[in-house]
Computed example of a mutant assay.
Amino acid sequence: MWEYLKAGRLGAPENFFLERMANYSPDVFRTKLLGQDVAVFCGPAGNKLLFTNENKYVGSWLPKYLYKLVIFAPGTSKEVIEKETLDIRSNPLPGFLKPEALKEYIHIMDAMAKDHLEEHWAPYKEVKVFLLAKTYSFSFGCNLLMSVKDSKDIARMYGPFKEMLSGLSSLPINFPGTPFNRAVKASRIISEEVMAVVKQRRREIVENRETAIRTDILGKLLEGPEDDGLVCKRIVAFLLGSYNSVSVAITFTISHIAQYPHVYERVFQGMNI
Results as ranks from 00 to 15, higher is better:
170 S>W: 11
264 Y>I: 02
243 Y>G: 11
128 K>W: 02
146 M>G: 15
225 P>M: 08
231 V>F: 01
83 K>H: 12
146 M>I: 12
271 M>W: 03
204 E>I: 01
219 G>W: 04
260 Y>R: 12
9 R>C: 10
162 K>P: 00
157 M>I: 01
91 N>C: 00
270 G>E: 11
185 K>M: 06
258 A>H: 07
100 E>V: 13
214 R>W: 00
194 V>Y: 03
127 V>L: 08
85 T>S: 06
213 I>W: 01
162 K>Q: 15
224 G>Y: 03
273 I>T: 10
110 D>L: 01
253 T>K: 02
83 K>Y: 00
84 E>T: 00
269 Q>I: 07
47 N>P: 05
155 A>V: 02
259 Q>W: 00
59 G>Q: 15
40 V>P: 03
249 A>W: 02
158 Y>C: 05
217 I>Y: 09
108 I>S: 00
7 A>V: 00
206 V>L: 07
240 L>N: 05
16 F>V: 00
6 K>T: 03
273 I>K: 11
22 A>H: 12
212 A>D: 06
79 E>H: 10
140 F>C: 13
193 E>P: 04
239 L>C: 07
161 F>Y: 14
211 T>Y: 03
98 K>E: 07
22 A>I: 01
145 L>T: 02
90 S>V: 08
255 S>T: 03
192 E>H: 13
264 Y>M: 10
141 G>L: 15
162 K>Y: 08
120 H>S: 10
56 K>N: 15
21 M>E: 12
154 I>L: 01
184 V>Y: 09
150 D>T: 04
186 A>H: 12
83 K>T: 11
237 A>K: 11
249 A>M: 06
171 L>E: 06
135 T>V: 00
48 K>A: 14
120 H>Y: 13
3 E>N: 13
212 A>F: 06
43 G>F: 15
117 L>I: 14
192 E>W: 04
150 D>Q: 14
103 K>F: 07
198 V>K: 10
204 E>W: 10
232 C>Y: 03
180 F>H: 10
54 E>C: 07
207 E>D: 13
243 Y>H: 15
262 H>L: 04
125 K>T: 14
88 I>F: 02
160 P>L: 02
108 I>H: 01
41 F>Q: 05
125 K>Y: 15
250 I>R: 03
123 P>V: 07
7 A>I: 03
16 F>K: 01
232 C>I: 01
57 Y>M: 12
213 I>A: 07
273 I>L: 11
197 V>C: 04
128 K>S: 05
143 N>E: 13
88 I>K: 01
244 N>C: 06
180 F>G: 06
83 K>F: 04
58 V>I: 13
242 S>N: 13
44 P>T: 06
91 N>Y: 02
61 W>I: 05
98 K>D: 03
164 M>Y: 12
262 H>Y: 11
27 D>E: 14
146 M>T: 12
100 E>A: 09
149 K>A: 04
68 K>S: 14
101 A>D: 04
1 M>V: 08
